[in-house]
Design a protein around this nucleic acid. Structure first.
Lengths: 159, 159
DNA sequence: GTTAAAGAGGACTAAAATGGTCCTATATAG
DNA sequence: CTATATAGGACCATTTTAGTCCTCTTTAAC
């Protein structure tokens, strides 16, 4: 399924919520109500986002969270990485290269390229995009310039 | 992490192994040795791949598995979907729309666009690509023509 | 100062997904 | 008839994930 974890999903929703009112500081309690999720869970998510530097927190009375950068400067990659750690399709796509199947694997290099392509894609999607309420009519080509894949004779399929 | 499951990883390695010698029928036992994985696990993976139509099986003595299409016509999407089911980053990106948080979510549409982009990307990666042993020097631009994202004022970041 | 509101940090539990094994049935070649 | 394979599940152990809770610290207001 290549799915995001629930917490990551929550994180995106919460970040979008904050992005729609970026001046205010938002408390966990308030956000929990807005996104219809339990307070402790929202709190946990906010802590993670804060710890990875996507949010800034103010403690004490009148405290809460604000975005540490503008919505256009926070990417989907950032949010995913904040909750799930480094983005990669395989263990070996980022790790310290201690996969014992390296020699019999034979596909590691190419999976890494694909992982890189997905990272690039997610780098292009900003919180500003995500926070937009409805689907927009204006299509924009996604630039994936930095992505390269090995060429096989005619093996790129057309769809 | 946006990670593939181990079984999917195995599936890719196994498919690549078969793709490198596509004439022969390969038994689970033989492939298990080649990819240094336990026989039962390889067997399970092969069954899944066979059930989704990526492999054809011949039972009985002298049996085994062969690709049901050429390596250039089997995509990474196919392999992932065979093991993990439909590709999508969120529950709602393919399901029957019964997410109870729909109204407070506000990001569903855009996640679905991103999911679609990843699907398109993975559709462009074929088994022929994956089966290539080493990293290749010939870079090829990935065509992501069919992918569109909502446009926000200048919110697409350059990298 | 005291108090109330808020986040920080971590421990803990319950539930779900995943990985892996094994068993029985069925098909096929020789 | 027998040996060799896959088909199809059942099953269990492990890991991951989700979710809750408790205590500590910080801050603002009175």
């Amino acid at each position: 399924m290549l799915k995001l974890s629930k917490l990551t999903d929550y994180a995106a929703v919460i970040m979008a919520q904050i992005a729609r009112d970026p001046e205010q500081a938002h408390t966990a309690a308030e956000l929990a109500v807005r996104v219809s999720l339990p307070h402790p869970t929202v709190g946990k998510t906010l802590k993670m986002l804060s710890k990875s530097g996507l949010l800034e927190s103010r403690r004490g009375s009148h405290g809460g969270y604000v975005l540490s950068r503008s919505p256009a400067e926070i990417t989907a990659s950032d949010i995913i990485a904040a909750i799930e750690g480094p983005i990669g399709m395989t263990e070996c796509s980022h790790a310290d290269g201690d996969c014992e199947l390296m020699d019999t694997c034979g596909v590691a290099d190419n999976w890494q390229r694909v992982s890189q392509a997905i990272r690039t894609l997610l780098d292009c999607v900003t919180l500003a995009h995500l926070a937009q309420s409805g689907p927009l009519k204006l299509p924009v080509q996604l630039p994936i310039q930095s992505v390269t894949l090995p060429s096989t004779t005619g093996a790129v399929r057309e769809h």
